[in-house]
Structures are given as C-alpha cells and as structure tokens.
C-alpha cells in the first residue's frame, strides 16, 4: 500500500486537476501548443485528464512562420496521431509586411508575430481561457504568476491586481471579453519536465537530441541553418557541429548548444552537470531588464 505519492505523481495530479477545472468552468477554452517539451508534457496531461474521452478543447499554434521545419512536421504528426483539432494561426498583417527577426529586430518581431498574433487569434475565436505551458521556475516574474492568470478584455496582465489563489480552489469568473491564461505546469521545474518525459516516454521534437547540424556563430549564439532565409554575413561561415537545443522557439532567436547527448538520460545528465539556465538560449529575455514582465503585461504568454 503506497503512503506517499512521488513528486512527479503529485505534480501530475495537480496539473490534471487544473486542466479539468478550466474545461469545466469555461465555455470556450483552447490549449496553446508551442511544440516544445513543456507543451508536449501539457498535451500528455490533457489526455490523461479526460481519458477515455478526448480533451474537450482544440490545440492552437501561433505560427510565427519562423519555426524550425522539424517542429512543424512534429506538430502535424502529433495532432494527427492523437486526434486533436489543431488551429494554426499567423498574424497575416505581419506576414504581409514581411516582419522577420532579421529585419525588424527580436523585440518588434516578437511583439508582432507572437504577442499580436496570439491576441488576434484569441479575439478571432473568442476563447475565454487559454492553457499555456509556462513554468514558475523559468524566470523571476513568472514566480509570482497565478495558475489562473486573469487578463482584461485587451489581454493585459496587471501584476498588482491578481486574484489570490488558495488551496486548489480557482476563481474562474470572467466577464464577457475577459479571459484567463491557465498554467497547469506552473509548479514543475525543467528537471521535473525532463524526468516526466523520460518516465512516461512522451514524444518530443528530435531537435532536442544531439546530431550533427549546420550552424553559424552570431551574437554569441550557435544558430542553425534551417532554411535559406538565414543570410550569412561576410565574416560568417557554416560549421557542422554536434548540437542540440535546450529550448525551442523561432530558429533565428534560439541558440543551439554543443552536445553529444542523444538520449533522454544523457540530456538530463548534461543538464544536471552544466550550470546555465534554459532561457539563456533565447534572445528575448536579454533585451532589457525586466523584459519578460513588460511583455507579460502587454499580453505575451
């Protein structure tokens, strides 16, 4: 007879509770699917929450059009295999204007293609709740984020007027036009996520595993050549290195790390033995002090 649930089973149960609560309380929820490892875990938990039924909400991917090609293939495969409805949304205005991380800088690009794209999609489909795979250990301002994070009718987040969350009771009341972002894996750490993927054998994008890939060095990062939109500058040259990604975003903004880890245990081993935090591979957080907090107030996940 087991007395104590292990930490992973406790985290799993808490997440399932949150996912069920959102599905029950909201009229039109959606699960944001970013194709990364955290999304993969969230998707897996959603399946567990409603088994033997399928989760009663669609998946939505905000496609910035700059994702790694392997991510898109993986996304479509997962939606197909698991029988999810998948909505893919891109900010068409941004696409028309040719907004790219190269020409417009990472800050404006992220704002237009991610934050704006997300807001447009939420308005378009009138979703009143959106699941996100953010974790509190990712970044300082996330540590204070609620599990049910209230957003105004213009999608703004006000860190000063968040609702207190007690026990496992969540206040899900919103008025028309208002919404919440729900974070079922708030209390997971990067290590928990990897251990759970290992334990449950959850499929993830192959880019997380090391392989020889063509890369260039730019701004202190190793950028992978994923398509011909990445133009080499005169002093840059292509190297073929054994690399993998600790985090997956838009390929021009996501740096690879040199690694030989080709299995999950090796990835976890590498993570435990190195000392550099996971968002470091992303340009977005370095733009200015407290940048994540500002982005969140404006509606970024």
């Amino acid at each position: 007879m087991k007395l104590n649930m292990t930490h992973l089973r406790q985290l799993e149960a808490e997440s399932i509770h949150i996912i069920r609560e959102v599905a029950a309380e909201f009229e039109n929820p959606v699960m944001l699917y970013s194709i990364g490892k955290d999304s993969s875990v969230m998707l897996h938990l959603a399946r567990k929450a409603f088994y033997p039924s399928r989760p009663p909400f669609p998946l939505m991917h905000i496609d910035t059009t700059w994702k790694f090609r392997e991510m898109i293939t993986f996304r479509d495969q997962m939606a197909h295999d698991l029988g999810f409805d998948l909505i893919v949304y891109s900010n068409e205005e941004g696409v028309r204007q040719g907004v790219s991380p190269f020409t417009h800088g990472s800050a404006l690009y992220t704002d237009v293609m991610k934050t704006e794209g997300l807001k447009q999609a939420l308005n378009h489909y009138k979703f009143d709740a959106a699941f996100g795979g953010a974790r509190r250990d990712e970044e300082k301002s996330r540590a204070k984020e609620r599990i049910f994070s209230f957003r105004t009718d213009t999608h703004r987040w006000d860190p000063k007027s968040q609702r207190p969350e007690l026990w496992n009771v969540y206040n899900a009341r919103v008025r028309k036009g208002e919404s919440i972002r729900a974070f079922p894996i708030s209390n997971w750490t990067e290590l928990d996520v990897w251990q759970y993927i290992h334990l449950e054998q959850i499929p993830i994008v192959p880019l997380y595993f090391s392989a020889v890939r063509p890369v260039i060095r730019r701004d202190g990062m190793l950028l992978m050549l994923d398509d011909d939109r990445l133009k080499l500058q005169s002093d840059e040259h292509v190297e073929h290195l054994s690399v993998r990604f600790r985090t997956l975003g838009c390929y021009p903004l996501t740096g690879a790390v040199e690694s030989t880890a080709t299995t999950l245990p090796q990835i976890i081993q590498e993570m435990l033995l190195t000392r550099s935090s996971e968002r470091q591979g992303r340009l977005i957080d370095h733009d200015q002090a407290g940048s994540m907090e500002k982005k969140k107030q404006e509606g970024y996940f």
Binding site: N4, T6, H7, Q10, Q195, P265, Q266, I268, Q269
Partner: peptide, 14 residues
C-alpha cells in the same frame, strides 16, 4: 550511472 540516478529520483517525495 545516470539511469540508476533517474530511477532513484523517480521515487522521491515532495
């Protein structure tokens, strides 16, 4: 022995 380590970790509490 990362596998042995992971196995031990899977049984820890919270």
């Amino acid at each position: 022995d990362i596998l042995a380590y992971l196995q031990a970790q899977e049984n820890k509490g919270m």
